[in-house]
């Protein structure tokens, strides 16, 4: 998308801020599920939006800002490590899936959600040297398919509106 540098910077900063808020809000209201660590993954909507509107570099920027700030403000270095590994793997998958015409935003979001969980489980089993933790990925993966498709619908709608908004904004 072509737009002024300032507009782009402001929009990316807004996306990163929204991602940070969403990840904090989510930590306040854990899902009523017997699976610790299960989250809606709403902040991934913002990363995917940045990916759709701009590209993987910009999306990576949003991701890094979000993870860095949330681990500084609400978490720990370890939670930052989890976030960056899961997020980076998710971003790789979502970028790659974007190369296929037959994959919609919903599919990219699902893949991102699943890979996010995979990255975190991999880090957890590596940090604790317990490969058996990977078993935990099974329930997380199926939950991620559900939450990922929901946030995919959200992303699709948000993108539609943002594109329209940015277009009308451009004319002024």
């Amino acid at each position: 998308m072509s737009m002024g540098k300032t507009r782009k910077t402001v929009l990316l900063a807004l996306l990163a801020a929204a991602a940070l808020c969403l990840s904090y809000a989510e930590s306040l209201f854990p899902l009523p599920l017997p699976i610790p660590g299960a989250k809606l993954g709403l902040s991934n909507v913002m990363v995917l939006l940045a990916l759709l509107l701009f590209g993987w570099k910009e999306a990576l920027g949003v991701l890094v800002v979000k993870v860095l700030l949330s681990s500084l403000l609400f978490g720990s270095p370890v939670s930052g490590l989890y976030g960056i590994c899961g997020g980076a793997l998710a971003l790789c998958g979502m970028t790659f899936a974007g190369r296929f015409k037959s994959v919609s935003t919903i599919g990219r979001s699902m893949l991102g959600a699943v890979l996010h969980n995979l990255g975190q489980v991999l880090v957890a089993s590596a940090l604790t040297a317990t490969p058996k933790l990977l078993v935990y990925f099974t329930p997380l993966c199926f939950l991620a398919l559900l939450t990922g498709s929901l946030s995919g619908v959200l992303t699709k709608e948000a993108e539609k509106r943002l594109q329209k908004m940015l277009k009308t904004g451009e004319k002024r």
């Binding site: 899936a97 296929f100 015409k101 037959s102 994959v103 919609s104 919903i106 599919g107 990219r108 699902m110 893949l111 699943v114 995979l118 490969p131 058996k132 990977l134 078993v135 935990y136 990925f137 099974t138 997380l140 993966c141 199926f142 991620a144 398919l145 498709s149």
Partner: peptide, 24 residues
């Protein structure tokens, strides 16, 4: 949902079931 989305769905489901082999 498009065709590719279902491919992703299927691949992810298989990926999700893989760790269960560790339970054997």
């Amino acid at each position: 949902m498009k065709k590719g989305d279902f491919v992703i769905l299927a691949l992810c489901a298989i990926l999700g079931l893989l760790p269960l082999t560790m339970l054997i």
